[in-house]
Design a protein around this nucleic acid. Structure first.
Lengths: 364, 364
DNA sequence: CAGTTTAACATGTATGCACAAGTAATTTTA
DNA sequence: TAAAATTACTTGTGCATACATGTTAAACTG
């Protein structure tokens, strides 16, 4: 420290440390001496050292961590915090979305962040537009439910841009297959459907119809769980027992196909449905056909929604830890913002849902 | 200074001064009390006061002049459009909230705006905190569903501050009685319940039980419509036929009271319920008691939600133009931002809901 | 040896004191 | 009366001390 002496002590210390950092003698991430060490070495009071360091922190040269120490910042990467987090959702399942957003909001609000909300309506072009808008808005982080997660996406460039800008993001509820190593919080759909299908086989059912959604990764995974559960006890996979539908079909196709099966006397022991809404429709179709649930046919739903509890025969289903999903995503994002260099193992969180047994299944 | 006590002293002082500035009680250019004055008045050390002031200076709220004093900065001069609109909602009716937000989002997104979302969980203190946060975030406008709209509020100062800063705001779904001339988009709850109750009287019913929520303005207004419809055809108002409940009661009290009435052979021709959820529970209670709907007793809901369509006997109800409500609020706000000097007549929008006749009512 | 406790050390909050230095109004002085 | 000195304020710099709180690694314990 060899500066003009008509300056103040703290400003001398500031210029000294600044120089060390700018000349690369203290490297980004490197710890600088503790306040007490500096004070002793330079014969200053701790207060004076502290003032210098706090001003350096304000200018972005260093950052402090309570209880650990003070570190040299990487000045190329520091951006202005907006305290806003982007949240992009897709097609809104009315009974899932609000709770997930609530979970996210709870955690983020506690930490002084706000949500900027966008809905894509499962429209890929809107997803592009909103990702671009988020980049412009200088958000501090992003939580996104991918649009048509089982299909091809050409929005990869936006995710790269986010990475280049050092803006962390977390997939929620689904992911693109090209990006399966990216940060994500998802439900184990395969395990969920596996437990449902296993439950049905254990009740003695063999002709188990499966109804799955074809354009979401959730549908793909639930189908896997279904197939695995049947395979486990040696039931050969029968494509005639599987009904696939798309977002656009969902109000008609599943119920109509079941009706056709009934008319054609296709053997049915049980129906494992993609979700409660489908299960509710299947229940109504069976009832209208004079088939009793669960005495003649067992039916299962998925999501543990109001469809499951409002159905005259309460539907056995799989719970959907909506709040937890949102909270977990928000927590992961907060951690990533704190510690930008998190390993891949730490950024994938899988929540295993649980079977909820109600009244719609019986032994064969 | 009346902030939470688990904060530090200097941060309490910071929030106090920030509030004074944001609410316009200290005006730009005005001198704030000297460090010693503040220290003495608040029983703090000068150092603590100094720390608070230096942080405020860093954030641009004040500026200091050596030897002269500390002054309030003019933050309006640095304000730019953020293209962000604040949306504050309260207790989340899961089946209403997402659609309203969707409606708001559709209109705002079309115009290049984004939503910053906050939920108060019907907690007045959270409402304060979020209003303050919105003021800090430099939003371009605000749509807010008031918390506990039938009760007293002491958040008026924040609305005044919004006006001082030239930030337009719109109440949605409810309003405070002290602020009934402020911009708002609401449903005509009185008219809605009036049409339901009139429908029931026209079917020949006379002993009409009414179930209403006591802590929302909606409940108060629906009760008015109920009373007016009965009065119209000369039925005297009978308090024994009216059941009041609170947010905390809602799962138990309405159904329990109906059960008691049945046990006491209280005459019941029809039950007009506050909403579909209540109506669903009432239906179940009647069914369990062996009372047929609609042959013995007619039941009506309100909101045209999934409860109405999932009920074994589809419930006659009143539609809730959720999307329209959100859209109307967003449009009104956009107009106000364009033309800041809008007259009062133009800023109040009342949407009249419509009766939706289904299967739960019959002639007497 | 895995799990817990403890001690050492980091930053964070808060107080007290002393004096430096800039500003503005009042008082004194030539 | 005009310039200078005084005085009473303001913010700025600096030191000593105390205890609170978070982190980490070494020591201890079952």
């Amino acid at each position: 420290m060899h500066k003009d002496s008509n300056q103040t002590k703290y400003s001398m210390l500031i210029s000294y440390l600044k120089e060390e950092i700018l000349l690369g003698r203290i490297k980004p991430g490197e710890q600088i001496p503790s306040e007490n060490t500096l004070a002793k070495k330079l014969s200053l009071s701790r207060h004076t050292v502290r003032k210098a360091i706090s001003m350096l922190a304000n200018e972005g040269y260093v950052y402090t961590e309570h209880g650990r120490g003070t570190y040299c910042a990487d000045r190329n990467k520091t951006r202005v915090e907006t305290k806003n987090i982007g949240v992009i959702t897709t097609y809104i399942s009315e009974y899932i979305f609000p709770r997930v957003v609530q979970g996210i909001d709870r955690v983020l609000s506690e930490n002084g962040y706000s949500i900027i909300l966008k809905n894509t309506g499962n429209n890929t072009e809107k997803e592009s537009a909103y990702l671009e808008e988020m980049l412009e808005k200088n958000i501090d982080g992003l939580i996104i439910e991918p649009t048509k997660s089982a299909m091809y996406t050409n929005n990869l460039k936006y995710y790269e841009a986010l990475e280049n800008h050092g803006i962390p993001y977390v997939f929620i509820h689904g992911y693109y297959q090209k990006m399966e190593d990216k940060p994500q919080v998802i439900l184990d759909d395969e395990a969920g459907m596996y437990s449902v299908a296993s439950y049905l086989t254990e009740l003695g059912h063999r002709e188990i119809i499966g109804i799955f959604k074809a354009d979401d990764i959730q549908g793909i995974n639930r189908h896997k769980g279904y197939a695995r559960a049947l395979a486990r006890i040696g039931i050969p996979y029968n494509p005639d027992n599987v009904i696939w539908f798309y977002t656009e079909d969902r109000a008609v196709k599943p119920a109509a196909t079941i009706r056709t099966m009934l008319e054609n006397k296709h053997g049915i022991d049980a129906v494992a449905c993609y979700n409660d809404e489908i299960a509710f429709k299947v229940y109504e179709t069976l009832r209208d056909f004079g088939v009793r649930v669960p005495e003649d046919v067992s039916v299962t739903g998925y999501d543990d929604s109001y469809f499951s509890s409002n159905c005259p025969v309460k539907l056995t289903t799989v719970n959907h830890p909506k709040d937890m999903l949102g909270e977990a995503a928000a927590r992961l994002l907060l951690e990533m913002m704190k510690n930008p260099a998190m390993g891949r193992e730490q950024t994938r969180k899988v929540i295993v849902p649980e079977l909820v047994v109600k009244d719609s299944c019986a032994k064969k």
